[in-house]
Each structure stands twice: as C-alpha cells, then as structure tokens.
Design a protein around this nucleic acid. Structure first.
Length: 612
RNA sequence: GGCCCCAUAGUUCAAGGGAUAGAACGGAAGUUUCCUAAACUUUAAAUCCGAGUUCGAGUCUCGGUGGAGCCA
C-alpha cells in the first residue's frame, strides 16, 4: 500500500471516529502538495464538510491532529483555506531514498509469464516510399509505448504490418522497368527505399505529363463541355485517366501480380528487398525494432475469405455491380466497401485478415494499433467489423491515434511535395549536434568514434524527446533547431543533467568520497526532501502514464526532475561540503536522481551519455 | 452535407473537478573565489466567445467561432 492510499484510509477511519459516518477511503482526495505550500501531501477537506458539519478550518484541524497522533509518517500539519497540508517525517523520506537507491529497476513493474500479453502495431510503412517525419512520430510513439506497457507489468509483442502490395507498388515497378535501365541501390549508391521511392515519383510525373498530352490532343476529350469550367476540367481529366496507357499498364501488372506471374513476382521481390534493407537501416538509426513483421501480401487473402464467409452468413451484402459492402448505418456510421467489383480487397479487408493471423499466432489479450488520426474512422469501422465477424476482441481494440507533425515553415503534406525524409532529418540533427559541440570545443580527448556516438545520442535524444513530450493526439510543430538546444525543455538538457551528475560522482570518487548505501535522516534538508518528493513520484508517473498510454507524462517528468536537480546543485556545493553525513546524503541523492533520469529516458527510448 | 479531433503567454508545450493556471524559448534586468556559462536568479506576458452543472471549471455539458482530418 503506498502512502497515498494509507492516508486515504487513515482519513476515512478518522472521519468514522470523529463524525460517526462511514466513507469510502477511495473518495478521499489526497494530492501531492503544491510546490508553493508547506507540506508533502494535501487532503482536500471541502467534500468532507457535509459530513463534519463544521467549518473547513475546524474540520481540517481536527483531522490533521488525528493524523499526526495516529499515523507514524505524518510529522505535522497546516490548514490553509480548506486544504489540509501534511508534512511527512524525515525517516519516511530516508526510506524512499534507500528504496530507490537500491533498486536498479526503480519505478518499473516486471511482467511474469502470466502477465497480460499486449500486441502493439506501429510503423506500418508502404514499400513505395521512404519513411518521413510522420512515420518518425509513429515509430517513436509505438516503441516508447511498448516499453511503457512493459514496465507496467505486461508482456509485449511489437509488430509491424508492411503494405507491400497494390497498385502503388506496381507503379514503382513499372517506372523502374521503363526508365530504370537496370539500376540498383548499389549502382546508384542509394538506399533501396529511396531508390524505389524515386521511381514512384517518376511514374507520377510521367503519368501527369501523359494526362496533359491526352487532354491537349484527344478530340473526343476536347469535345467534353460541362456547365462550369471547373466541371469541364474535372470531366476531361477523368476521361483522360481512362485513356492513360501508363495506368493501364500498371493495372495489368497488378493483375499479373495477383495471378502470381513469375516474372512480376520476382521483380516485386527484388525491389521489395531493396526497400526492406533501407527500412532496416532507418529503424536501426531510430533505435526501434519489432518482434514480428506481417506482410499484407500474406494477409489480404485471409481477409477476403473472412469477408466472403461473412457474406454467406448474411453479415454483409452484395451490390448489383458485384462489390461487397457492410451496412453500418445502425451503428450510426456509413456503408463501407469491403471488396471492389473486380473482387480485389481494400485496406479494411487486409486489416481483417491481419487481425485473424495475429490472434492465431499469439494469445493476445489486447491489441493496440499506433496509427495516425486520419484513420480514426477506419478503426472505428474495423472494431465493429471484427466484432461482427465474431472476434470477441474486436470491440476492445485500441486505436492509439496521434496527430500530424508540422514544421515551423508550414504544413508537411506529401501532395505539396514538402515531405521531410526521415533519414535526412536524422542526419541533419546529427550534423547540427556535431557543429554545436565543435563550436563549444567540447569532447576534447575523445576519439572520433566516441565523439560521433555522443553526437548520435544527442541528436536522437533531441528528436525523440521533442516529439514524445507532446500529447500524442495533438497536432504538433517540430522545430529541429529548438529541439537540439541545451537549454529549455529539451532532450539534450535532460541528457546533460545526467552527464553532469555522473561528472560530479566521478570527481567525488577521485576525492575519495564514497557514496553511502543509506542516507542519514537527521541531516536531510528541505531542498533535499523536495528532490525526494520527485523521486517518490516516479513509479506513480510511470503507472499513470501506462494507464493513459502517455510517454509525454514521463518526458515532462524527466525534465522537471533534471531542472529541480540543477537548482539543487546550485544551492548546495556537494563536493565542498565538509560535513560527511550531509555530503553522503547529497551524493546518494545525486546518484539516485541520475538513475531515475536514466530510467525515465529509457522508457522513451532515449540513451544517456556518460560524458558529454 | 455527415462524423471525429484540436483551441492556454509573442512562440512551443504543461496542468488526475481543487489553492495565486505551470515551464521553456524569445523580451527586459542581473549573477563568475563553487559543478561542464550547454548554468543560475529576478521580471513582464495567456485559458477563443456565450450559457449551464458545481462549494469550486482551462478541465464536465450545451450552443457558437476558428483550425486540422476522415467519409462520400
């Protein structure tokens, strides 16, 4: 039982004794005391006035006195404006410190074999383009979430679904065949995902040129006239699309692919393997990984089967043109297409198939999809469909929805051609870190490899922290320059605080000062207890963050702690302290703060440098 | 047209229905016998509008306004 619950129970008991009225301990409001007030925990007395039938001050006094008398941990109290502020005994804080200091996994709850199994899907790339800034938010959130859920006592399977089939892949293949001249990532000295992405763009460019040409030369199309100019343009474009040879060839290729034409399949495999090599490099750079990867080329047929089975059972219906639909109007939603008139599957169908395979492969208790909020509707529908097909977990699936990432210069949307490439962005960040460090003249005496590793840690720490500190559901603005600043609410600031503590501990060790195993309670000072209050909150924050799936909570916590420590260190000079007991306490607190920072950043997937 | 999300200092972000709405960057003023000045101190500055629920609303409800997204 933690102290909060203990206080709740104690207050409930006191109320029963004083006012002869039973209250549920859980309804007693116990908060961490505001920073600007004296005390550690605060009982809100307003809700209790109906029971005590006395003024707030009087009620607070009575309960406060009883707490001091009956609860060992409560040393003193103070009632201010209806808030009962409790100050805990130094011995209590000394215990907290001892516990935290002796436990390397402080704040984490380990999972055993029987713990719930949670599957997290994230990343979900298309094989026709490289990862971009939006994927970065996705990957970082997914990876951090997996750790957050793991340290809350769950088993986790990280999974990735690769969209490796469909017309878009055929476009890349076609372009490569037509204009690639047999080039490879090696021959072009280019990452495979970028190469394939370039050919996708090439197709689009040629296609647009073709449409323009058709619209300018085709007499039939020129004859189309609608009531407004806009509509005319639209109709002509649609007609031109029908006449496009390029698009026709791409469609033919897709049919060949579905019919498992050996030549097309082998080209598809070759180009996809280039892409995967490129992705792996990016994932490695970002420091994310997966336990199991699914490919839509393997799952779409399963989905089709399930849909057709549902059709037989009357759960779906067929339109006159042969397409298959789900009617969701009684759920307050629309009708949703599941199979096109040519029998090909849509995303929804594939997701149904993927879900089936996953639950066949793992005894999953919970499924979390990390996917952008533009797909909110999709997952609403998926949940209902899975439920309707008869998967009981369908209703409980979690769509971990996050907002778009924008840049200070403006929106990043692929159709405007301002996509920020993930690899380029990370490389820029590393370059910036290197330049800044050189300017500051730091890292002297490091080998090049050691220094480069620090630059990488800093650059990724900056990127990860900046993105993860924001509430996922909100649209956010990523500012690369700000993110890598050593001042402010940034990753490097927190990393730097850690490195400084390490530096202090090294100096202490050089001076022959040992870090004690346990603190001396009697010489704990107010400022130190303030830090211990932060340390005490870490397990609470991690648990709460796990409950609401919020790496942001952990990120902001880490920053607060680092900042608090900086202030602490400025008020006290640890190494110059003459009193051995006080110095011991401070060294132990410093060491523990470093550990808590490290653990918090670990949850976020951020590394810490021992020196920087 | 229907559905969903968002709205807090100049800017980027915080705030489990609780006290005087916190930080950071930027602005203004300062601090160097002590740690890595990549630090610290002080200061000015905000809840989109209007109702409602509540002892108490940035937070919950309803109605506007503005922005983003999805479905046709």
């Amino acid at each position: 039982m933690d102290i909060e619950q203990k206080l709740q129970q104690a207050v409930a008991d006191i109320i029963e004794k004083l006012y002869a009225s039973k209250v549920d301990a859980k309804t007693i409001q116990v908060n961490v005391t505001r920073k600007d007030q004296n005390g550690d925990y605060t009982v809100v007395v307003f809700p209790l006035l109906k029971i005590s039938k006395k003024a707030p001050d009087v009620t607070g006094q009575e309960i406060g006195q009883a707490l001091v008398d009956n609860v060992d941990e409560v040393a003193s109290f103070e009632v201010i404006k209806g808030f009962l502020n409790l100050t805990l005994a130094k011995a209590y804080w000394a215990n907290i410190l001892s516990d935290a200091a002796s436990n390397d996994d402080y704040g984490f709850r380990k999972a055993d074999d029987k713990a719930p199994l949670v599957m997290i899907e994230y990343s979900s790339p298309n094989t026709n383009k490289p990862l971009h800034l939006g994927h970065i938010r996705n990957n970082l959130l997914g990876y951090s979430l997996s750790r957050l859920i793991a340290v809350n006592g769950n088993r986790v399977v990280k999974t990735n679904i690769v969209n490796d089939r469909g017309i878009h892949i055929c476009k890349s293949m076609l372009a490569w065949l037509k204009w690639g001249e047999g080039c490879t990532p090696k021959s072009r000295n280019q990452k495979g995902d970028h190469l394939v992405g370039d050919f996708y763009v090439k197709f689009d460019k040629e296609y647009k040129a073709e449409l323009k040409h058709i619209m300018e030369t085709d007499e039939e199309i020129k004859a189309i006239v609608c009531e407004t100019e806009e509509k005319t343009e639209e109709a002509r474009k649609a007609a031109a699309e029908e006449k496009s040879i390029l698009m026709k060839e791409a469609r033919q290729m897709l049919v060949k692919w579905e019919n498992e034409d050996p030549e097309i399949r082998s080209l598809w495999k070759k180009m996809n393997s280039w892409v995967y090599e490129g992705f792996d490099e990016t994932y490695h750079l970002l420091g994310v990984d997966f336990d199991k990867i699914y490919y839509e080329s393997n799952t779409y047929k399963e989905g089709k089967e399930l849909v057709l089975k549902g059709l037989d059972e009357g759960k779906f219906y067929r339109e006159e043109d042969g397409s298959v639909w789900a009617d969701l109007t009684n759920e307050g939603l629309d009708k949703k297409i599941l199979l096109r008139k040519d029998g090909t599957s849509v995303y929804m169908t594939q997701d149904i198939g993927t879900a089936k395979l996953r639950f066949r492969d793992y005894p999953i208790d919970k499924m979390i999809y990390v996917v952008g909020n533009e797909q909110n509707y999709h997952f609403q529908v998926l949940s209902i469909l899975l439920d309707r097909i008869g998967f009981k977990w369908g209703k409980e699936l979690v769509h971990y929805s996050y907002g778009m990432v924008e840049l200070p210069e403006g929106k990043m949307k692929s159709r405007e051609g301002t996509v920020v490439d993930a690899d380029d962005l990370v490389q820029d960040m590393i370059d910036t870190a290197r330049e800044m460090s050189k300017e500051q003249g730091k890292l002297e005496g490091y080998t090049i490899a050691e220094a480069e590793n620090v630059f990488r840690i800093l650059a990724l720490g900056a990127l990860k922290y900046f993105i993860l500190k924001v509430d996922p559901k909100k649209t956010m603005t990523f500012n690369p320059k700000e993110s890598i600043d050593f001042n402010g609410n940034t990753g490097p600031f927190v990393q730097y605080a850690y490195a400084r503590i390490k530096s202090v501990l090294r100096k202490a060790s050089e001076a022959g000062y040992a870090v004690p195993e346990n603190p001396v309670p009697s010489v704990l000072e107010d400022k130190e207890i303030q830090l211990l209050r932060h340390i005490e909150q870490f397990p609470v924050v991690v648990a709460e963050a796990g409950k609401v799936y919020s790496p942001a909570l952990v990120a902001n916590y880490a920053y607060d702690l680092a900042k608090e420590y900086n202030q602490f260190y400025h008020d006290f000079s640890i190494l110059k302290e003459e009193n051995e007991q006080k110095r011991g306490n401070r060294l132990l607190i410093s060491q523990t703060v470093a550990k808590v920072i490290k653990n918090a950043l670990w949850v976020l997937g951020i590394e810490v440098p021992e020196r920087m």
